[in-house]
């Protein structure tokens, strides 16, 4: 049982500090993962809150068939899919909003993503399609195994393997393009 599972169990027993620990440990990763889905950091933040709200209101049972983080991301993914079904339109932002938006996104990235290599990869991920973005995020930033990715993304292992292969190729192409741009500069 990881720390998240322990914190969640304590929360279910009536200790609100358990919730505080879960939010502290998982909020940034969840926001960035959900941002890969919805492409909007504000919406991702709202969805992160909705994910935690679902835990504290519905109190779903964590069966320990996977890690707590895998289970939490799967819950967040379902909420994000519902959100995308309801809202097909992206948020319209003014120029001031865009400045704040970029600043907020930068903050959460800086707090969660360490190392220059990871920052470059994260930037390049934004240019990929959502499925590639998700699987690469889970594989490289969350260190999820193929089995855990298949749980979160609700795909079988073969599909995960194929998707990951295609996503890596797409990432390589984007990185090459990035290098080419750097060279030109």
């Amino acid at each position: 049982m990881d720390n998240g599972a322990s914190s969640y169990r304590r929360f279910l027993e009536g200790d609100d500090n358990g919730l505080t620990e879960i939010v502290r440990d998982y909020k940034d990763g969840l926001i960035l993962y959900l941002n890969g889905f919805v492409g909007n950091i504000y919406a991702a933040e709202d969805l992160m809150e909705e994910t935690f709200l679902k835990l504290i209101i519905k109190k779903p049972k964590f069966k320990e068939e996977s890690s707590f983080k895998t289970w939490l991301y799967a819950v967040g993914r379902n909420i994000a899919i519902d959100y995308l079904r309801r809202n097909s339109k992206r948020l319209d932002l003014s120029m001031d909003d865009v400045q704040t938006y970029l600043s907020d996104e930068q903050d959460v990235e800086n707090s969660y993503i360490t190392g220059e290599r990871n920052r470059v990869i994260y930037e390049v991920l934004k240019n990929l399609n959502p499925d590639y973005r998700q699987i690469l995020w889970l594989a490289y930033f969350e260190d999820f195994s193929n089995s855990e990715i298949s749980t979160v993304m609700r795909k079988n292992k073969r599909q995960v393997k194929n998707l990951l292969y295609r996503a890596k190729n797409a990432l390589k192409n984007e990185l090459n393009k990035e290098d080419f741009i750097h060279e030109e500069l």
């Binding site: 609100d16 919730l19 505080t20 939010v23 502290r24 909020k27 933040e45 992160m48 809150e49 935690f52 709200l53 504290i56 907020d104 903050d107 959460v108």
Partner: peptide
């Protein structure tokens, strides 16, 4: 971006 305690209190 909200802090951890803000998010918890709001939840």
């Amino acid at each position: 971006m909200k802090s951890c305690s803000e998010i918890t209190n709001e939840l």
